[in-house]
Design a protein around this nucleic acid. Structure first.
Lengths: 213, 213
DNA sequence: TTACTAAAGTGACATATATCACAGGAAGAA
DNA sequence: TTCTTCCTGTGATATATGTCACTTTAGTAA
């Protein structure tokens, strides 16, 4: 039993209708993650679908030697597509999800999925839309690593950060390098170029996206 | 009205139950693609979900300058996850699907999706499984281009080809290079190495996967 | 057979990115 | 303040891959 009102829920998940909201409030469980908690880790087996009510979650792929590769953020109104793949055989999905801020999540037990699907058309619309948007996001990720050089990838990365977290991007060069599976020096040099081009300005620990193009 | 018997359909799509098979036979449309036909192209808007009954389809991503990047094959029993994203706004999804052999497809008009979802639980299981498997496949694709060097990617590529098309891989170095968005010379050299390592043997137009590791 | 074409092999060089080594500077701790 | 640590800048060099130029080979058509 959740402590939201249907109205509150619908504000975050506009696709939901009243009856679906009621059902979720009745049967969902609430969970609060503090900042920098690991919410999902490689090899984990999921018993819940997770809906993000508030906060921000970073999803990234881990390489066998501990490399990281940033994929996307989940924010309020999003669901974790991967947690919905929970019914999958317990294949070790090497994906990591980490909260970047305090994050409020609704957990929906997997046993309820079938009944939700059957009885709440808006639920499956929501699920399909979740898959669709993540799928498309993944495709653009593939595009960038398959076809683009690091300078363009960095630019795209910063653009995404800016649109999600605001124009003051509080990340070190090292962190950006991690996310792009590159090295700090390379990123520093490319950032320098972008600064000369007037696309960004830099401070210690922060990059200001000037968003001129 | 399709010319399959429910039994035939269920053989190809084992997850289907009798009533779903009946429904699809009654309302689906059949389409035959000959070899090397473009089945889906960038920017296309879909009015059908496509199920592959027979044949083989190659899905690849196209870069802005005409580069190619192989993603996966669809075979009998598969559905095109992307065609199921049809309800999506008409965003130009820059993906290409080309038949590699004569390919038999069932087309399900998009208007039927809601009713299928609602009335046939096995249908949404099928849809979810389609998404899930393609999503996972995409994730491993991301892994490889993000973390691996060309030699490992080539090896993985050949392994996938072998498991899908058999151990005699009838592709030229040029074609492989295209699929990996690399260049022929690089692929030739790496193949030479693999031959020395005893992983493959080579003939003109064909690579024999020896599958020793 | 001969001629032609597509596929494959190979050396030389170009480029992007990774790596190493180190220096300077800013922020925080003592 | 001084010390220390972390962030950033930068040159030198290594490596993987891409590109160019050319040769060799295998199959095919005449």
């Amino acid at each position: 039993m959740l402590s939201y009102t249907p109205h509150e829920l619908i504000q975050v998940f506009p696709i939901f209708d009243e009856s679906l909201a009621d059902f979720i409030i009745e049967h969902g469980e609430s969970k609060l993650f503090s900042s920098d908690e690991v919410m999902m880790r490689p090899g984990q087996f999921f018993k819940y679908a997770m809906l993000i009510v508030k906060g921000r979650v970073k999803l990234y792929r881990e390489g066998v030697e501990g490399e990281e590769f940033f994929m996307y953020y989940l924010e309020n109104g999003d669901a974790c597509a991967l947690s919905m793949l929970c019914m999958a055989r317990n294949q070790s999905s090497t994906i990591m999800a980490v909260s970047l801020e305090e994050t409020e999540v609704i957990m929906i037990p997997i046993q309820l999925m079938d009944s939700l699907m059957k009885n709440y058309p808006t639920w499956y619309h929501f699920v399909i839309e979740t898959y669709r948007s993540r799928f498309e996001e993944l495709l653009t990720v593939v595009d960038h690593i398959a076809f683009k050089n690091m300078d363009e990838r960095l630019e795209w990365y910063l653009k995404r950060q800016a649109s999600s977290l605001g124009n003051d991007i509080m990340l070190t060069h090292q962190e950006i390098a991690h996310d792009l599976n590159s090295s700090r020096e390379v990123i520093s040099r490319l950032l320098k170029k972008m600064e000369k081009n007037g696309q960004i300005s830099m401070e210690r620990n922060t990059i200001h996206w000037l968003g001129l193009n």
